[in-house]
Write a protein that binds this DNA or RNA. Structure first.
Length: 597
RNA sequence: GGGGGAGUAGCUCAAUUGGUUAGAGUGCCACCCUGUCACGGUGGAUGUUGCGGGUUCAAGUCCCGUCUCUCUCGCCA
């Protein structure tokens, strides 16, 4: 028997018991005549007291932290002045009578008992050590609990969980695939799924009605703070005979349940606000606005039309826009604050950024001398300006203004401390456009997902300007993080051919690329739709972690490498031969194509 | 692929305009200490300043190249 109790469960009522504990040496405090050891396991910490005269201690030459040991001893009550209120087991301690070394530790590459800010590459290489730390350990347990709660909630609603293939076909649209060469079929490749999109739709065609899966997804794209490269998990959901509102209801209920049970921040109960995509872009310059931030862009183009400030007047004249962002109570800020904000806007593509400050004694601004009293007062009124506020102005073509505003708004909100850190703010972004114009080629392309149902159906496709057609496509956003995107699917073959035709694909191409799906839809497909919230991002928000790697047990680094397992790695020539693969490296690479057999 | 930041002891960082033997904290090793819980005290060991080249009497510091990490834009049906 390795233990009679764990390190987190002994209390005052256990005093007098003879116990056996096993765990990691968390810390050692050697006082010469008495030695204290904090013994740690998954469940907690217990203090072990050792008399250095004991023979088992004499036989030992090292007490290195993070070694795994077993202690026998008696549970004794701590005297009142030595109770440690910070420990759940702080009212007792173990007087050791014997011990055994179960797994000795060498010198550690970084500390476990305290955070020594070790660099992430080191932490990833020794992930098993890092995972012993309280914070990370708790994050991973939280993730486990969230996932089991999701399963319970979805199952209770009548959803069934399915498994879909991991080795599947390369999909022609979307992100880069991870490819797996086929041994039996020379020259052919499997792909890891970017999402189980087609499978879940086919399950609806098969009549399963309500599907979910905690689904691994694989995309060969570059990393971000909120995007782990390579692989991630999503709660993949699909439902038959539903409209957008039915999906929203399920997901709002699930989110409210999970965020109430596991989140530590307040949030307004569902229904969550819905913002059309175009409105979100116009106001926030983003399709994932952080609604904790009160800043937004206000259109003031008409006020500047024909004014004496030529830069703005000519922008409006040539079809551009002028948008204002109201920065509350910044009149007291030094000049440098305004200069730095302008510099920030310029780094994000702005030609410049004008501003007007309403101080107690009139307006302060580099541009106010070009403006009439009517314009200035009009700006004050349109912008809802109070004394002490300032307006920042961005003037350019609409798309660029949105991009710059999308960068300036979060930065300004952060600098001014306008973002409430103790709150979750959810919203749906709805009415995504079906098509957009490729900026380089000028051609009409699908803007998000070719499988979404266009609003207005075939009639809209046949009669409306392509760029004006909206899709039943939606995202759910929390605190500026896109949690999920989903859509009501296009399940009508004729409608699909027509949508693809608008995007420049003729019938034969569609049949070749999406033949499986189309032929399924030709044999009786129910209207259906779904959504796929990212599990990692949900846990990231619940754990209040700014970095997604902190909620994944064994994440890739930013270069999509596993520093602990050494993946990706070279393979033997024999393996390559079996797969009919010959490796041709780029000139710069130094490593050989394959190690010797 | 582009842009910003970083690279000095196992780890976190310092080192004035280029100027003595590159320091501190932490960890590690040894010793002292019977009530600590980030224990305390004394002493000690530990450096290719990422790598390569250049300028200079002299380079951690300046210049060029290169590599790595990180954040970000592109990318993410």
């Amino acid at each position: 028997m390795y233990r009679s109790h764990n390190c987190g469960e002994l209390r005052k009522c256990d005093v007098g018991k003879t116990v056996r504990l096993a765990g990691w040496i968390h810390s050692v405090r050697d006082h010469g005549g008495v030695i204290f050891i904090d013994l740690r396991d998954h469940y907690g910490l217990t203090q072990v007291v050792i008399d250095p005269e004991k023979s088992f201690y004499q036989a030992l030459d090292r007490w290195r932290v993070e070694s795994v040991v077993r202690f026998d001893g008696e549970v004794v009550a701590r005297s009142a002045e030595t109770v440690n209120p910070k420990l759940a087991t702080g009212e007792i301690e173990i007087r050791a009578t014997d011990m055994e070394m179960l797994g000795e530790a060498e010198v550690l590459p970084f500390q476990v008992a305290k955070d020594d800010c070790a660099p992430e590459a080191m932490r990833l290489k020794y992930r098993f050590l890092d995972l012993r730390k309280d914070k990370l350990h708790n994050n991973i347990i939280l993730r486990s609990k969230v996932i089991s709660e999701i399963r319970r909630y979805m199952t209770d609603l009548g959803f069934n969980e399915f498994q879909t293939p991991i080795l599947t076909a390369s999909s022609p649209e979307g992100a880069r695939d991870y490819l797996v060469p086929s041994r039996l079929h020379p020259g052919k490749f499997y792909a890891l799924p970017q999402a189980p999109q087609q499978f879940k739709q086919l399950l609806m065609v098969s009549g399963f009605d309500r599907y979910f899966q905690i689904a691994p997804c694989f995309r060969d794209e570059d990393a971000r703070a909120d995007r782990s490269p390579g692989e991630f998990y999503q709660l993949d959901v699909e439902m038959s005979f539903v409209e957008q509102d039915d999906i929203f209801k399920v997901i709002e209920g699930l989110i409210a349940d999970v965020f109430t049970k596991f989140g530590k921040k307040k949030f307004a109960p569902p229904p969550f606000p819905r913002i059309p995509y175009r409105e979100s872009m116009r106001r926030f310059g983003s399709d994932k606005p952080d609604l904790r931030n009160p800043l937004e862009m206000i259109d003031v183009s008409e006020l500047f039309r024909g004014c004496d400030f030529k830069a703005f007047a000519s922008t409006v004249e040539s079809g551009g826009v002028v948008r204002a962002i109201r920065a509350p109570q910044v009149a007291g800020k030094p000049r440098k604050f305004f200069d730095d904000m302008i510099k920030f806007a310029q780094e994000n593509g702005a030609k410049g950024m004008a501003y007007i400050i309403w101080t107690g004694e009139g307006e302060k601004s580099p541009i106010v001398k070009f403006l009439t009293r009517e314009i200035i007062d009009g700006l004050k009124q349109t912008g809802g300006v109070q004394e002490g506020d300032a307006l920042f102005f961005l003037a350019d073509q609409e798309k660029l203004v949105q991009k710059i505003g999308g960068a300036v708004i979060p930065e300004l909100g952060r600098q001014l401390g306008l973002i409430d850190q103790d709150e979750f703010k959810f919203c749906w972004i709805v009415d995504f456009p079906m098509f957009e114009r490729d900026e380089e080629t000028g051609e009409i392309i699908f803007s998000h997902n070719p499988f979404s149902m266009p609003q207005g159906g075939l009639e809209a496709l046949n009669t409306k300007e392509p760029l004006d057609i909206l899709a039943w496509q939606y995202d759910i956003v929390c605190n500026g993080i896109e949690l999920s995107s989903g859509a009501i699917r296009n399940h009508i073959p004729e409608l699909m051919y027509r949508a693809f035709e608008i995007a420049g694909y003729d019938r034969s191409v569609v049949d070749r690329k999406f033949g499986g799906m189309i032929s399924a839809f030709k044999l009786g497909a129910p209207p259906h739709g779904g959504i796929a919230p990212g599990v990692d991002r949900m846990v990231m928000l619940l754990a209040d972690e700014p970095n997604i790697r902190e909620v994944i047990a064994f994440p890739f680094n930013q270069q999509a490498e596993d520093l602990m397992m050494n993946a990706p790695s070279e393979v033997t020539l024999k393996q390559l031969r079996e797969l009919h693969i010959e490796v041709k490296l780029p000139k710069k690479a130094e490593a050989p194509a394959a190690s010797r057999e």
